[in-house]
Amino acid sequence: MDDKTRNRKQQTWVEAEFEDSMDEELELELDDERLYGAHLGEDLSKIKDLRHSSEIDRRVYFRELIRLQAELVKAQDWVQHTGYKMVVIFEGRDAAGKGGVIKRITQRLNPRVARVVALPAPSDREKSQWYFQRYVPHLPAAGEMVLFDRSWYNRSGVERVMGFADEDQVQQFFHDVPEFERMLVRSGIKLIKYWFSITDHEQQLRFLMRIHDPIKQWKLSPMDLQSRIRWEAYTKAKEETFERTNIPEAPWYIVEGNDKKRARLNCIHHLLQQIPYGEVPHEHVELPDRKFNPDYERKVLPDNLYVPEVY
């Protein structure tokens, strides 16, 4: 095979790999749209009435997402190369889109560099500890990015609204959290806090989708249903959280989340602006030739070891 033919085949392979990468994102988008055409009985009219259409053309969205994800890879390389330490907090109402943007941020990144932390409810032992103690082990070492899918702000949000924390505990949290976050910043951690904001009607739509979608029903918990009932209580809790924890060292940034596509792009674009990353020098990589042993004969394995080719 001559060099020209080899290069053409390699280019075709690269293009095919890129299409596979695009398909992965397309699958996620189609999953979002999957139930809009389904017959959901009485609730279908509610969903059609409430549905929020994205203002961004799908092709533009894909192009911008891939471009921003390429920048995230550059930022990741710089973080690893320089020993930078980052914590990004994602908060907001249930179904506000936090998980979707976290998925797009980490989609192309090295999980050894960019870690997602989503802690379950605290155990009895953890409840007896210093409140921040269970979060501390997950903080980044040099060259790491940690994304908290909900964080210590559970105390001023769900724990307060649902009565899992009494008023003394909440006030102690508000007293402690600014200094805790200043300590993190003084230790060299870049702390970024996002709040995803959606309207009452948009949350209603997303909950209806989860109720009727067997693939997404696991996302709907009894706590989520309570959050619908206590919408105003969550609003008051959010407002006091902003008022008392929006410090210069770690300000809050609000992401308008009704349009999922715009929210993802805007959040990733803003996140990149918070990282002072630059190009990292890389050594040129040459793929070595494979060594061939003329005496080696590959064994034929029994058919029952192979996964059936159903597709």
Results as ranks from 00 to 15, higher is better:
G92T: 03
R155L: 06
F207H: 10
P137E: 10
P137S: 10
V255R: 01
E71F: 11
E239V: 00
E256G: 11
G188V: 08
T245E: 03
S187V: 12
F18T: 14
Y306N: 15
D77A: 15
D20P: 01
D259W: 00
V117Q: 07
H39K: 14
P214E: 14
V177Y: 03
S45Y: 07
L205R: 07
Y234M: 00
D289T: 11
R125Y: 15
V307A: 10
E33A: 06
S221K: 10
E15K: 13
S123F: 08
M22P: 08
D289V: 06
P308D: 12
F173I: 02
L265K: 01
L271M: 08
F292S: 13
V88D: 06
W78Y: 11
S123C: 10
H269S: 13
D32V: 00
Q171T: 11
Y253S: 08
A95I: 03
D49V: 04
A263S: 04
K98I: 00
I254C: 06
H81F: 15
Y131K: 03
G100K: 01
E27G: 04
R290W: 10
L72S: 01
K216S: 11
D20F: 09
E27H: 06
P122T: 06
L208K: 13
D77M: 13
D295M: 14
P222I: 04
R115P: 01
N246V: 03
S21I: 04
V170E: 02
R59W: 09
E126T: 12
Q69T: 01
Y61A: 00
F174E: 03
I198N: 03
V285Q: 15
L265R: 03
V116P: 05
E309T: 12
L205P: 05
N7M: 14
K219M: 08
H270R: 13
F173C: 06
P222R: 12
L68I: 03
Q11P: 05
Y311V: 15
H270W: 06
D303G: 06
I275T: 07
E27D: 12
D124K: 11
P222Q: 09
A95F: 00
L50Y: 04
P120S: 10
Q11S: 14
W218K: 07
I89G: 01
G92H: 05
S21G: 14
V307K: 14
L72W: 00
R115Q: 11
W130M: 12
K216F: 02
